[in-house]
Design a protein around this nucleic acid. Sequence first.
DNA 1: GAACTATGAATGAACG
DNA 2: CGTTCATTCATAGTTC
Lengths: 162, 162
Amino acid sequence: MTSGGHKISARQRWTPTAVQLQILERIFDEGTGTPSKQKIKEITSELSQHGPISETNVYNWFQNRRARSKRKQVMVASSSNNNNNHNNAGESEVETEVESPKTKPENLLLVSEGQGQHHDVCFQNPEITSQLHFLGVGDDHMCQLKEWGEAAFMTKHGRVSE
Amino acid sequence: MTSGGHKISARQRWTPTAVQLQILERIFDEGTGTPSKQKIKEITSELSQHGPISETNVYNWFQNRRARSKRKQVMVASSSNNNNNHNNAGESEVETEVESPKTKPENLLLVSEGQGQHHDVCFQNPEITSQLHFLGVGDDHMCQLKEWGEAAFMTKHGRVSE
DNA sequence: GAACTATGAATGAACG
DNA sequence: CGTTCATTCATAGTTC
């Protein structure tokens, strides 16, 4: 299979070069936490001297960088404070994925997808949906929920409650 | 045990289904740039026929859509001096999401493997259900939706509900 | 070469 | 409304 087919999906992602990475990290470390759009353009121009890059790439890079740093910090942050181990009072409903707010490395996600296939699965993939539709799968076929309650999350500012 | 009522909500972020997306895009393209609150309700009602959705979701979707379009325009407009984007990051083309039928079977595969158990599965997308069936999954585990807890709209700044 | 990892890209939700 | 955050998906790159 896949032989003779046409290469339609050429969605390769940009891969920063070493030089670009150095510059990016330097800027990021300098303190320009949130570079303005103008700044983005400057950086893009600068980096374009060392390889193909677009403003979107720079923007995404900073966004990811920041999110990643935060995640790392959060993940590491658990050894401070006193150790208060108190398991929950049983009641393991569905093993909700609403785990602790400070423990959600992306690795867990991978685990659920790749090797570990022994826990709750929630299907919410727009991509899959689209693809299925293209595959000729009808939208409303079997599982037609009768009533969808309006469920809205109210995570005000504390992100994950608790 | 003895614990009544739980938030079985396994969905933290609404994911529009293909049908919902189509409708949304159509409306957005129709010209109803900023749907009124009344319009929002109508759209929500319409979309709720194809999956769980709330007015907030619709509102956010339109806002995001608008912002995204604008940002793209700004990016293009800014590039007047030197232009070196020849990669896929720009995404300036609106070409249809014509994904090849043999795209990435990974997601589908994980789906088929992931739900081979008995755990609760949250089906947001009817399409997924079809696919699962296609993969050889019995519908016994499918329509197991219990009840979507009705959560009040927080609307800090008064978003949708008023 | 399949599994795992790292990270860029996409998007929904929240804030100001 | 524009910007930013947070979560998830997809793929390049690495390991075994």
